[in-house]
Amino acid sequence: MSLSRTSTVIKPNKGLLDYKINELWRYRDLLILFIKRDILTVYKQTILGPLWYIIQPALTTLMFTFVFGKMANISTDGLPHVLFYLLGITFWSYFADCLNKTSNTFVLNQAIFGKVYFPRAIVPASTVISALAKLLVQLLLFLGVWAYYLNEGVINPNWQIIFLTPLVILFFGGISLGFGMLFSSLTTKYKDLSFLLAFGVQLWMYVSPVIYPMSSIPNKYLLLIKWNPIAPLLEVLRYGFLGRGTFDLSMFAYSGFFSFLILALGYCVFTKVEQNFMDTV
């Protein structure tokens, strides 16, 4: 077996532009193994196993239907409550899970990061990718409920928009990974931020159209919600699957652009911090 004879130089404070993308590629096997590990080990030694993936959104949807739909009477654009909430919860929980998990990458993995070197970005990336398994299972639940209502003829999907779903998931993943890497980098030195993030994610849900449609927002607040890169993504899904909502290509492009930008920024800061975080964490 021959090893690549590359010379390496370890120096202090590499510039912000040292992305180490090659190295990420060299460690692709590790990424795959981490993803496998994350998926395989979550529900080991539980009786219901992956069924938990379905129980979580199902119960939350029932609760939302009861609290927001029946008691608070918040509009769902005339769509069936269950379907409306299930769609929002499925995708929002993917986003929130990824963000919460990736945002303390350094603190959680201190033990292993302190012992061996590998590109640290592998860890949050694997978190975001392995969370797709859960999303997929939950999506199946949603599709089941969706097919039922489709059969009843209550909804009119915009079929061509549905094909944008993979792109929407990509943007969700990008935004959560970007923010997650940014926060995990900053929390190594200033721990205050982890408190901010914990309830920040909760508040974020209320400024995103998860439990209400964009159309129910008064005009004077609309601009505020529009800056939220998550809003157009949820609206696109709703427009596609449920046939109601707004589809604005420029807003959708904004989300995509934002996702790319925050991912690049997060990765930059992350690779900068990973060199010395053991000294401050």
Binding site: S7, I10, K11, P12, N13, F113, Q275, N276, M278, D279
Partner: peptide, 12 residues
Amino acid sequence: ITSPSYGEVSYE
């Protein structure tokens, strides 16, 4: 695991 403050290391 951590980077130096000053100076450098090179290896093959």
